[in-house]
Design a protein around this nucleic acid. Structure first.
Lengths: 189, 189
DNA sequence: CCGACTTGCCTAAAGGTTTTAGGAAGCTGC
DNA sequence: GCAGCTTCCTAAAACCTTTAGGCAAGTCGG
């Protein structure tokens, strides 16, 4: 009875791959068991429940996304940093749609607090230090930045911008430019 | 064998209520049947499948949202219109979280084209006519507006802004102000 | 008013997912 | 080489989805 070598980590990783292939909502304990050539019940030694598995995938995705953003941010400041950060977000969502969906899985507050969501907030704040904002404004701007990145990427992933001119890429560049101008407190072009 | 008087419309409406109560992803043909005190199979005369039911709820939500936005927009222009539109969006999501989730249910392209999504785009464009934008810019701005509204509301619903000062309401006002300033091409305050 | 037709809800059943309980085979360390 | 832990299995109950076929309640022509 050769062992498949299951671990929580491998399951979560495979679950993330599965999400990218078939969509996050199609990720199921059964499908994962099939992928490992193993009976369903076997997974329950490594994963508490279906919900637990999805939470794991969500945390993985949040972590990967934070890593990407951190890498993109390294050595940059100002608009450069803003654009790199935003692009990291968007690229990740395009490369890993299932994982990106997972990153928006509703986490209970304690799990969320222990997640990489905190790193995201810190990085956003770091970018904004390159702009001249008062403290309350900085928080508002953190929220604005998060909203734009998340909103744009979501709508794009849902196909919202795909069947009309101009190209989504152009709009994205315009949006990033505009945010920069807004945060610098200067008019657009 | 008293008849329950099921119709597709009533099922979709009840499904929307159910979504607001227990979450859109918990909306199930079985749960709906229980709510009507009827056997599960009975619903399949009115609804093709679970996916079909969810599509119906999504279309209902999109329509309601467009109605609200249209009402908010009536008789307003410029920043007034912008704020009213954005608030309609946000208020709907807060009052009807399940329906709002439903509105983001992935529709196949033809269904989407026939949905109220089109009205949303038209209204956004109408708002932007109050600003002085060139044609390509207007499209970019449509996308930006959609992204901000959707992104902010999503993150807020996920609890992203709930456990930190300042109040989300303040940030929202700041964001709307900022968008207005951005679109007018003027610096922020 | 009554047979025939349509419609609305039912029973039955098959297939898939989730989750728990308990058993047997493989690995680890003494 | 065997005690014990880990890994994976079989079994089974509960729930959701979907299809097929049946009976009875409304509806309509004669």
């Amino acid at each position: 009875m050769a062992r498949a070598g299951l671990t929580t980590e491998r399951l979560v990783k495979a679950g993330a791959e599965l999400a990218d292939e078939v969509g996050f909502d199609q990720v199921t304990v059964s499908a994962l068991a099939r992928r490992f050539g193993v009976k369903v019940a076997s997974l329950y030694s490594h994963v508490k429940s279906s919900h637990d598995l999805k939470t794991g995938i969500a945390l993985l995705a949040l972590g990967e996304l934070a890593d990407r953003a951190a890498e993109a941010l390294a050595g940059r400041a100002g608009k450069d940093a803003l654009a790199a950060f935003a692009n990291a977000y968007r690229d990740y969502a395009r490369e890993h749609p299932g994982r990106y969906d997972a990153a928006r899985f509703r986490l209970d507050p304690e799990t969320a607090a222990a997640s990489a969501g905190v790193r995201h907030a810190q990085m956003t704040r770091a970018i904004l230090r390159g702009y001249d904002l008062t403290e309350p404004e900085q928080t508002h701007a953190v929220r604005l930045l998060g909203s734009v990145c998340h909103g744009y990427v979501s709508l794009e992933a849902a196909g919202g911008f795909s069947h009309s001119a101009p190209d989504s890429q152009e709009s994205w560049a315009w949006v990033v430019d505009s945010l920069d101008a807004l945060l610098r407190g200067r008019p657009l072009s």
